[in-house]
Write a protein that binds this DNA or RNA. Structure first.
Length: 274
DNA sequence: ATGGCATGACAATCATGA
């Protein structure tokens, strides 16, 4: 049966490294790109200081889970396009984590999960063990969530470069944090739930990365890692028509060290025929 | 030599990031 054509739905994830500093860039980006769902990490803002008014004025409904100084996540929903969020979760169930790294909500018959994975600091450290445990808890929760929601998207800063081609110098990074085998196993565990790496659904340029160190002119020298990802359940992978990294934001004055990743879905609310 | 930036908290450096 014929289906009414709808404008594509665009989902994005961006580690802003301080929303206070990056708000002008975010507003300008939202103004020039059409993105419907925006997941942000490292807002570094308490909920009281979240720039709700500015973002509502820009046409977005705001959901956030923040804390002072570190971490902090948010999901922006384009009001004109999307119904109000439901079933909002501001903490990862099964975790007693005080760090604000997780936010989930439902809109347009879709479960959207925004995640800021722990960095891990160094292989073998306490923070590394915390990272692996956090990934395990997320994976277990997602397993149940996928049983309930056919249409699910996991977006965020995973702090994992899944494969050698996601690393500018695989030998230099071999076994290091962000690239170690246990972390990559964690990533593959998420994929094993049925989640597809939207970026790898398509042919991509070589040396595609989402993070470059502020030091050593790493961006200019293409010394990056692909650690920010959009993972889609099978029903969403099927309607995903594009996924790209918006490197232009890394070129700006006073940039975040991460660039956004944007995925396009062929239609928004339309259910797949059954 | 393990830093080099950047950010926030805080008031000279220090924790953290990746």
């Amino acid at each position: 049966m014929p289906e009414v054509a709808k404008a594509p739905l665009r989902l994005a994830t961006w580690n802003v490294n301080s929303l206070k500093i990056r708000l002008p860039q975010l507003l300008s980006w939202l103004h020039t790109r059409t993105v419907d769902i925006v997941c942000l990490q490292e807002t570094k803002l308490t909920d009281e200081s979240f720039p709700t008014q500015e973002l509502e004025d820009a046409g977005y409904q705001c959901h956030f889970a923040g804390q002072k100084t570190y971490n902090g996540v948010a999901i922006l929903l384009r009001t004109e396009r999307l119904p109000a969020a439901e079933a909002v979760l501001t903490a990862l169930p099964g975790s007693d984590d005080v760090q604000k790294r997780f936010l989930a909500l439902s809109t347009a018959d879709m479960r959207v999960v925004c995640a800021y994975f722990p960095n891990g600091q160094a292989v073998g450290s306490d923070k590394y063990r915390y990272k692996l445990q956090w990934i395990e808890t997320l994976t277990q929760w997602l397993k149940g969530e996928l049983a309930r929601s056919e249409r699910l998207a996991l977006l965020g800063d995973f702090n994992i470069a899944p494969e050698a081609r996601d690393v500018h110098d695989p030998l230099l990074w071999e076994g290091q944090v962000l690239c170690s085998e246990p972390e990559r196993e964690g990533f593959r565990g998420l994929v094993a739930l049925g989640l597809g790496d939207a970026f790898r659904l398509f042919e991509q340029p070589e040396r595609s990365y989402t993070w470059w160190d502020y030091r050593e002119q790493a961006f200019r020298r293409k010394m990056g890692l692909r650690i920010d990802h959009i993972l889609l359940s099978p029903a969403l992978s099927k309607i995903c028509t594009a996924c790209e990294i918006d490197v232009e934001l890394r070129r700006l004055e006073r940039p975040s060290d991460h660039a956004p990743v944007v995925a396009t879905l062929a239609h928004g609310h339309g259910r797949e025929a059954r």
